[in-house]
Amino acid sequence: MLKKRIIPCLDVDNGRVVKGVNFIDLVDAGDPVEQAIIYNAEGADELCFLDITASSDNRDTLLEVVKKTAENCFIPLTVGGGVRNLDDISRLLHFGADKVSINTAAVDNIDLVAEAANKYGSSTIVIAVDAKETAENQWKVFTHGGRKETNIDVVTYCNEVAKLGAGEILLTSMDRDGTKSGFDNKLLKAVTSKVNVPVIASGGVGNLSHLLDGILEGEASALLAASIFHFGEYSIGEVKRYLADNNIPVRI
């Protein structure tokens, strides 16, 4: 049986792991390569780096982090943040990323999704969607790290990128991100019930039952979490044992 994946996410700023609340107030959480090696050893199913560095000067720092991680961790590595075009994707893959996540650039130019999927394969292209509830049971896509609102409906958009060749969708609830109040399972269900590619739930995990809810209520294929792992609240092993005890198929 296909397992539900647990993906620790490392938000990387200028070569360090950071974690914010609702996308701001960043707190330093350590060296990304060291963290990645620990998660790999603990049994993480994949790793995710999101580059939140604003300045392009620091992009090379991320490439070094990706390269060193790829040399040490033999599980899939997704890298995103500031990916604008096919050259950016090529560069990340060349340095060792297995998948590349595209956010704002896909909203600005939807053709990029098809171009990227055709060139690198659907399995390589993750579309990251930052979603915010703007009316009851209605979510809009936000871009530029959550700073810019668009008029695009999240479910419609996810369907469209899936049809264009996105291999999976990384769906972040901006309302929940960093709040530790649980995933937005209504948002997740709205997307997973309509879209035929795997959806990674992101934003809001504070405890173990939140993870279980993301699978049972949100029907996510994979769960992404940051702070509960970085600050040692739970280990990957604890999360997996908890899910296994609740009859969720996980890789142990």
Binding site: M1, L2, K3, K4, R5, D45, S122, S123, G167, E168, N196, V197, P198, V199, S221, A222, R251
Partner: peptide, 13 residues
């Protein structure tokens, strides 16, 4: 069936 997402992505035995 519909509940099986495509691609088949992840760890399987």
């Amino acid at each position: 069936p519909k509940e099986y997402k495509i691609p088949h992505m992840g760890w399987n035995e």
